[in-house]
Lab assay of single mutants.
Amino acid sequence: MFYPNSPQTSPQLTQIPYGQQYAMMQRQIQQPYHPFATTEPQARLYPYHYQGPIQQEQGGFITQQSTAASPQYVQMRVTPVDQSIMSGYPNQTANGSSSSSFNYNIHPQQQQQQQQQQQQLRHHAMPVGSVPLQDDRYRKQLIVNYLAPDVTSTDLHELFSRFGELDGARIIYDKQTNMSKGYGFVYFCHAEDAKEAVERMSGYEFHGKWLKVGYSTNPLNIVPSNSSPYVHAGSRGAAG
């Protein structure tokens, strides 16, 4: 039997160049792979992502010199942007860049009308829970959420009447099932009393439920100042 490094198959040491006398086997001759043993700084910083320098080929596509990437890492192929796409944008300079302001050559009167329309939209648009300043009635009506099913309009009136005089209180019921929808409205005579009720009743436990109280901004629920107070009856038909 002959071994790869046996004296019968191995040459004389004098015939082997210096430095390879003890590297006779194939696994010894093959050098191990060192990912950080390279002179390129990109490979030292990113050993798993770097795959060699990027070269520009004919046709405008950018390719990489090395083989496919590892399945664990996804390499994105980048193509140059066609400058003709950006030619339609206004205020574009000769080098292809555009300024931040756009001039669509709008007539001054049209621009003024658009600004007025935007101001009107901001004036009428009102986020949930906010209180408008032009109508004091919005500051007097509250919406009470997360009410228990057994709470009546009379219970709601008695709960909030300790903060001040009320114009009314009612629970909203479903017309088909005649069941409470879980929320109601309270109408105060003074805005200061309503503000105190919002601050003190939010998070209050009532009939096993934690109440959420806020201003009601729905104009359909506003009680006119010259109208008669609501009837605080315990029956659902009268309260709904």
Rank of each mutant, 00 (worst) to 15 (best):
F188K: 00
A94W: 09
M24Y: 04
L220D: 00
P32I: 08
T79F: 15
T217N: 12
A194P: 05
D167F: 01
S161Y: 15
R162D: 11
I106D: 03
P47K: 02
G52Q: 03
S70Y: 15
Q118H: 10
P35R: 05
V128D: 11
N103K: 09
Y3S: 05
R139D: 03
H107Y: 12
S227M: 11
H190N: 11
Q51A: 08
M25A: 03
H49P: 11
S98H: 13
Q117S: 08
I106M: 10
E192D: 09
G240S: 10
F2I: 04
E57W: 15
Y138I: 02
T67K: 02
G240F: 07
P47Q: 14
F206N: 01
S228T: 08
S228E: 05
R44Q: 13
D174F: 02
I29H: 05
E57G: 10
T38Y: 15
Q51E: 13
E196C: 07
A43P: 09
Q12F: 15
S6R: 10
F188G: 01
L142A: 02
Q110S: 09
D193N: 08
A37C: 10
A194C: 03
T38G: 13
S153E: 03
Q8R: 05
Y187S: 01
C189A: 07
S66W: 15
Q176T: 10
Q58C: 15
S100D: 06
D174K: 01
V144E: 00
A148P: 02
M201Q: 03
I171F: 03
K212S: 00
P11H: 08
T14D: 05
L220A: 07
W210I: 03
Q92A: 12
Y33A: 06
T9A: 06
I85A: 10
W210N: 02
I171P: 09
A191H: 02
M25V: 06
R44D: 03
G96P: 05
Y89V: 07
H124K: 02
A148Y: 05
I62K: 06
L121Y: 13
P224C: 07
S97Q: 13
F160I: 01
Q111G: 11
F36E: 07
L211R: 01
V198G: 01
N91F: 14
D193E: 05
G129E: 11
L45H: 08
Q118N: 09
G88I: 12
D82A: 12
N95P: 08
S99N: 12
A125E: 07
D150C: 08
D82C: 14
P53L: 14
A69N: 09
F188R: 01
P127D: 06
P132K: 04
Y3P: 02
I54R: 03
P132C: 08
V128F: 12
S225A: 06
I85K: 06
Q65F: 15
K175A: 04
A37Y: 15
D82N: 12
H124N: 10
